[in-house]
Simulated assay, not measured.
Amino acid sequence: MHRPTVPPPAAVCFSTLVTVQVGDLNYGKHLANDAVLKIAHEVRLRWLASIGLSETDIGGCGLIMTAAVVQYHNQAFHGDELRADVGIAETAAAGFRFDSALIRTRDGLPVAAAQCHMAAFDYAAGRARRLPPEFRQCLAALPRADGTEAV
């Protein structure tokens, strides 16, 4: 059976620390699979805040996730501190790929990597739209190692 490979971000543009909370655990007492996407969402909000934006306003519209791929590497447990590294890839007219990797700080082991495909979305009109020009410029200024160019 094919197993997708999700590499860590090729070029890191933002990092933050998160702690595994009790609500992030599953019945096996380790980080739950669904909690990885929840953490990726938190990390995305922190990245946007660091550039003065929010998920509901990137310059006249918001963002919506259209797809996600997660690869799990190692377990994490309650209280573990994780470093979340972020990179942006595959920028297009209406969206981009938000890459993140979770690394356990006490031993440097990768816990998980996620690719979240994000699209510009006009929530009032209920439809996708192009990324606002100012946001596209912001994305274009980020470190990139994937060979793509901002549109």
Rank of each mutant, 00 (worst) to 15 (best):
V69A: 12
Q71N: 02
T91V: 14
A35I: 12
R106W: 00
A112I: 12
E42T: 14
H41F: 12
R83K: 15
L25V: 11
Q115K: 06
V69Y: 08
E42K: 11
I88M: 11
L45Y: 06
F77N: 11
V111L: 02
Y27L: 14
A114F: 08
R46T: 01
L31M: 08
E55R: 01
L63P: 02
L53M: 11
Q71R: 09
V20P: 02
E42H: 15
N26I: 13
Q21D: 15
K29A: 01
L31E: 06
G79E: 13
A32R: 00
I103P: 08
L25M: 13
A113Q: 10
G28P: 09
V86M: 09
C61I: 15
D24M: 12
G62D: 11
A76D: 05
V36E: 11
R83M: 14
S54W: 05
H73D: 11
A93L: 05
A101R: 06
E42F: 13
A93Q: 01
L25K: 08
I103Q: 15
V20T: 13
A112F: 10
E55G: 00
A119L: 13
R44A: 02
P110G: 01
D107V: 05
L63W: 02
K29S: 03
K29P: 00
I39R: 02
A112G: 07
Q75K: 00
G59T: 14
L109C: 03
G59S: 09
G87N: 01
G28T: 14
A94L: 06
N26S: 08
S54P: 07
E55S: 00
R97Y: 00
A35H: 05
A68K: 03
A76G: 04
K38Y: 03
H30S: 04
A49N: 07
I103C: 05
I88Q: 07
R106E: 05
A32L: 03
L48I: 08
Q75V: 03
W47I: 02
D80S: 07
N74D: 15
A112N: 05
S100N: 13
V86S: 03
R44W: 01
A40Q: 10
A89Y: 06
V69M: 07
A114M: 11
A94I: 12
N26V: 13
D34Q: 06
D34Y: 09
V22G: 11
F98D: 07
T91K: 03
L82P: 06
V43D: 01
I51V: 13
I88S: 05
T91N: 02
L109E: 08
A119P: 04
V43R: 00
L25G: 06
A49W: 10
L102Q: 02
L45Q: 07
L48H: 01
D99M: 12
G59H: 15
Y72E: 05
V36W: 05
C61N: 13
T56C: 12
G62V: 14
H78F: 15
H41E: 13
S100C: 14
D85Y: 01
C116G: 07
L109A: 10
V86A: 10
D24V: 12
L25N: 04
R106M: 04
A40S: 05
D85F: 01
Y27T: 12
Q21Y: 13
L48C: 00
I64P: 06
A119W: 07
T56G: 08
I88L: 15
V111W: 00
V36L: 10
Q115R: 08
E55K: 01
A101Q: 12
V43G: 00
